[in-house]
């Protein structure tokens, strides 16, 4: 009940955040304006619309996760609302989980809203959806679970501005981890190769969650691939949440 109470309150608070609406509106504008870029690509209009629509859900969802997420714990400490909460008979991990669940519930709503608008738009433009469309949206949401967990971790460690910079940098880097193993020939067999490979395996590869390109290009994706990516994302998310509770457990507020 305690985690649910904190989650419900977090949802209620986050839904009042003006940044959320700003990003949601930009996300929807981006989906709708995908047709403009579609015009420019002769013959590939539908592909571009599908590509940009799903990319918009991913990017604007991530921005909501980062900007609201990095404020979650910090704001409670800064505004001192945390004093009367942590002094109740709750464990600190319950607080972190409650905050996290509140935000991912909100993200489920925003992803659903953008996903439905995008789906309607694609169908209106003459495209088809198929199961892969819903799998693509589901994996985008799964990626947001991971980004939110990292944002919550940073929120218990540092200020929202620094937290947002770190999470956004990690987000960009997480989409390009492929370069760590795509090394020049003269580096092969060196310690550097082993080091980069180790970093590659430790850091989450966020591009694994992006199957919208396959959807846009009509490429088949197996359901097993989707499920394994969900397991992969869940493990990283659990690890980040564990670290967040560990940090918060010993924090003076």
């Amino acid at each position: 009940m305690r985690i649910r109470a904190i989650a419900a309150n977090t949802y209620r608070e986050a839904i009042r955040d003006k940044v959320l609406y700003l990003l949601l509106i930009f996300g929807i504008i981006s989906i709708v304006s995908s047709r403009i870029l579609g015009y420019m690509s002769i013959g590939d209009e539908l592909k571009i619309i599908a590509d940009i629509s799903l990319a918009s859900i991913s990017i604007f969802g991530a921005l909501i996760a980062v900007f609201v997420g990095t404020n979650l714990v910090y704001k409670e400490i800064d505004k001192r609302t945390i004093y009367t909460i942590i002094s109740r008979p709750i464990d600190r991990y319950e607080f972190i989980l409650g905050k996290y669940l509140g935000l991912i519930t909100l993200l489920a709503v925003t992803t659903l809203v953008m996903g439905i608008i995008s789906a309607l738009y694609i169908v209106m433009m003459g495209g088809s959806l198929g199961v892969i469309y819903f799998e693509a949206v589901l994996l985008i949401y799964w990626k947001l679970l991971l980004v939110t967990a990292f944002s919550v971790l940073l929120s218990s460690l540092t200020s929202p501005v620094l937290g947002a910079i770190i999470v956004l940098s990690a987000y960009v880097f997480g989409h390009g981890t492929g370069i760590l193993i795509d090394i020049p020939v003269d580096m092969q067999g060196t310690y550097m190769e082993s080091l980069l490979a180790a970093i590659y395996f430790v850091l989450p590869n966020l591009s694994n969650f992006d199957i919208w390109k396959e959807y846009a290009n009509g490429i088949e994706i197996s359901h097993t691939y989707v499920v394994w990516n969900m397991v992969y994302g869940a493990l990283y998310t659990a690890l980040l949440l564990y670290l967040a509770t560990l940090v918060f457990e010993n924090k003076d507020v």
Partner: peptide, 18 residues
């Protein structure tokens, strides 16, 4: 121990609420 906190009511200086 959270059992300690179940026995306490705390009023901070200048309390802040949602």
């Amino acid at each position: 121990d959270k059992r300690a906190r179940s026995l306490v009511g705390y009023l901070p200086e200048n309390p802040y609420f949602y």
